[in-house]
């Protein structure tokens, strides 16, 4: 008797899954990733599966390796001298550390938004058109369309449409950051990495970027490092808690913030340290 009920439940669950959403693909599969800065180990045995069209937040105290991890995903970490890695990160099934995997190819698929807004010292238009241009798109008409679409996508079009030819450094910090997001959208990446994108912004600009992230996840997979736990709770679907270079807990955001299974996670999110 009980067995049949159990079975029915399982069946229902499967049916539920099917009717609500089709199963999502894994974008990034990290297995046994270790990373050293010289002799210091910054990441220890990381195993993480990141699914597409979701917002995955990475939280943790300073120095826990969350920025290191996100920079490893597009191999920007290799710009730091003396970095060594072991293990594997598969992006869409292909190991990004493979010798045959061109780093430019990876970064064309995986965009990045940085902690501090870093527009190029060019016009607003040129900033957005930079990516398509270096990848060989030259036709003025197409570029115009891409620029408008990307700026609209980053919810900044209305603010800048009358001054596209002015220097990007005339914008406010929050506008600059949304411009950087637009610059990233212009090459239509698959994944967007965001490394504490709001840490240098005021609360209103932060709100705008957060709303934007919610819209963007319809089309893109977003991985966001944040210092701010409330932010992670507000905007993410899944959350990974990093501590001392290890993943302590990785689960649905709701679960992490309501019933964390690890004591350390609970201590961190309740503000006992960090």
């Amino acid at each position: 008797m009980t067995a049949t009920i159990e079975k029915q439940k399982v069946l229902e669950k499967q049916g539920d899954n099917k009717s609500s959403k089709q199963p999502k693909d894994i974008v990034y599969k990290t297995s046994e990733l270790n990373l050293w800065y010289g002799e210091i180990q910054a990441l220890k045995n990381i195993d993480l599966d990141i699914y597409e069209k979701e917002v995955t937040a990475i939280i943790g105290p300073s120095g826990c390796g969350k920025s290191t991890y996100i920079k490893t995903l597009n191999r920007m970490i290799e710009l730091v001298p003396g970095v060594k890695t072991s293990g594997e990160i598969a992006y869409r099934g292909r190991n990004i550390f493979d010798k045959s995997y061109g780093v430019e190819e990876l970064r064309t698929k995986v965009g990045m938004v940085f902690q501090k807004p870093n527009p190029f010292p060019k016009s607003i238009y040129e900033n957005v058109a930079y990516g398509p241009k270096i990848h060989g798109i030259r036709a003025k008409k197409i570029l115009d369309e891409i620029v408008e679409k990307s700026l609209r996508g980053a919810a900044i079009w209305d603010e800048v449409k009358d001054r596209l030819n002015q220097n990007a450094y005339g914008l406010s910090g929050g506008q600059q950051q949304r411009l950087c997001i637009a610059r990233c959208l212009a090459i239509e990446p698959d994944v967007i990495l965001m490394d504490e994108p709001t840490s240098a912004l005021d609360p209103i600009s932060t709100l705008k970027v957060e709303e934007l992230v919610q819209e963007l996840k319809e089309e893109f997979s977003i991985i966001i490092v944040t210092h701010n736990m409330q932010q992670a709770a507000r905007i993410s679907d899944k959350t990974a808690f990093f501590l001392n270079g290890e993943v302590v807990e990785f689960a649905e955001t709701d679960k992490i913030f309501s019933t964390p299974s690890d004591k350390r996670t609970e201590d961190y999110i309740t503000g006992r340290f960090g």
Binding site: M76, L79, E105, T108, F114, K116, C184
Partner: peptide, 13 residues
């Protein structure tokens, strides 16, 4: 500033 190089590299330059 290096942040500009990073910005460009991250776009696949």
């Amino acid at each position: 500033p290096n942040s500009m190089r990073e910005g460009a590299l991250a776009l696949g330059s």
